[in-house]
Structure formats: C-alpha cells, structure tokens
Simulated scan of single mutants.
Amino acid sequence: MIAKDLRSGVEQLGNMIAEASSIVPFTGAGISTECGIPDFRSPGGLWTRNRPIPFDEFVASQDARDESWRRRFAMEPTFAAAKPGRGHRALASLYRAGKVPGIITQNIDNLHQASGFKATDVIELHGNTTYARCIGCSKDYELSWVKRQFDQSGSAPDCADCGDPVKTATISFGQAMPEDAMLRATELTKTCDLFLAIGSSLVVWPAAGFPMMAKNSGARLVIINKEPTDQDDIADLVIRHDIGDTLGPFVGN
C-alpha cells in the first residue's frame, strides 16, 4: 500500500511501530543525504562524477590505489562535518526504547554509531570509510596515518606489518561481502516482525535481498524512499516522502 500523503504514512507507520516487538531497520544512502553526504546513483551523485574503482583494480594497480585515496581525502571534509540527521536520531530513539535489536546498513559513514547505536549493533554490509584496513592481515589504521604516509611518499601506503595494500574499511565492487555481517543480518531479518527499508534503491545485491527475506519470514515490510523501488509491490506500506520528515516525529519517542 502506498501512503496517499505524508501525514497518513506517518500515522500508519506509527501504528506498525507500536504493534511491533522487534523492528529491524535497513538503511541506504538516502537517510544520510540530509546530513550533507551525497548518494551514489542520483544525478550529481558520486558515481556520476567518478567511476568506481573495482577491488581487483585496486589490488593490481598502484595508480588505482593512489586515485582511490585521493578521492577519499577529497571527501574527508564532507564526512567529518556530517552529523546524524532526523532519520538516524529516530532510529536511535527506537533502539534506546528496546524496539530495535540491531540495524543493518549499506552506508559507510558511521552516522548510526554517532546517533547512539553501539558499534556492535550496527551491521555494516559495505564496511566503514572512517578508518582503513590492510587487505591482507586486516590490521586497522587511522585515516590520519594513511594521510601522513601518502603526503610523505606521494603514493598510497602498504601495511607496516605484512606489506599488503591498505584501503578504506569499505567493500568495493568485486570484493567479498563480510561473512559475519551477512550472517548477523540474516538472523535479524528472519526473526523481526517489522522490517523498515529506508533510503535504499534496493538494486545492490545481495544486500537488496533482505527486505524480501523479511517479508517471506513473516515480517511486515515498510519501504521509505523518495523514488519507487522494485520491491514496492510486496511492501505492506510504501512512503515516498522525505526521510527526515517521515521519521522526524519519532525522534525522542
């Protein structure tokens, strides 16, 4: 059912939240756009300006690694200035109220943690761009360390321990999905009674399979996204309005 207007959508959503005992939010880039972080696919999005660098290209080419880090450093002021928006704060309110056992996100911006979620309760399917990790031994690095090495040598650094390349702790195209995160997301999805897909175009697989999985496991499915998605027809409620306006009434509840 597509909400006829924002007011009725918020009212229906509120009723579903009140009736639910276990709510699992699943968030995409749309929840962070009001925080100043651009999405990837929309006109003017990151991928319309720069072609994504696949994982195998990153591994094989020093030039690709250098370009990848130049792009990340160029985005640092944007990520550093971003604060949780109304959507993040509303979900954190439901988390504090005991309604949300954990959150599944495609986002890499760390804003759910900043809004009040414990890091262990944020399941990051596509990783996190606020720190770096060796692709070999998995040693973590602060971005400041990477920047110092880059500025000193003029090229992307390798791991100080094993010598393999260091990249942001994100999942690139062609890189294996994090097994533990996928398992935890599957468990949460199959055991919730209300699944909220928020700000995701639902076109990136396997992540896009979770709303359908929740529905097939007996949960009610709500999709909140400005644009239509391929899964709208299976949702119990579709709200095509601004995410901050939709979730704002639930901040602090």
Rank of each mutant, 00 (worst) to 15 (best):
A208H: 08
L111G: 03
I108H: 10
L6T: 02
I239M: 01
K83P: 05
Q62H: 07
N253P: 09
K226Q: 13
M16L: 15
T246E: 01
A60M: 08
R51A: 13
D56A: 12
P84T: 09
D66G: 01
Q113H: 11
G163L: 03
A60C: 09
G209S: 10
A18D: 13
Y131L: 07
N225K: 00
D140R: 12
V10A: 04
E76W: 11
M182H: 12
D140P: 15
E142M: 10
P43S: 08
R96D: 08
N15P: 07
F173I: 06
A156Y: 01
C159M: 02
L125R: 11
S61D: 00
G199I: 06
W69T: 02
S21T: 14
G28T: 05
Q152V: 11
A132W: 05
P228R: 07
S155C: 10
I224G: 03
S201V: 03
A29F: 03
S22M: 15
Q149W: 09
F195L: 00
A29C: 07
P77I: 10
Q62I: 05
M212R: 13
N107H: 05
H241R: 11
P84W: 08
A219G: 08
I17K: 04
R7E: 15
L188W: 08
N216F: 09
H126A: 08
I243W: 00
T120Q: 12
D193Q: 09
V24R: 03
C134E: 01
L202Y: 05
P157W: 01
K147I: 06
A119W: 04
D233V: 11
H126P: 09
C159G: 06
I17H: 06
T27F: 03
G9T: 04
R220Q: 13
F79T: 07
T191Q: 13
T120C: 10
K99F: 01
A181H: 10
Q113W: 02
P77R: 10
G248W: 00
G154C: 02
W205G: 14
P25G: 00
V222I: 04
N128D: 15
E57H: 11
Q12N: 12
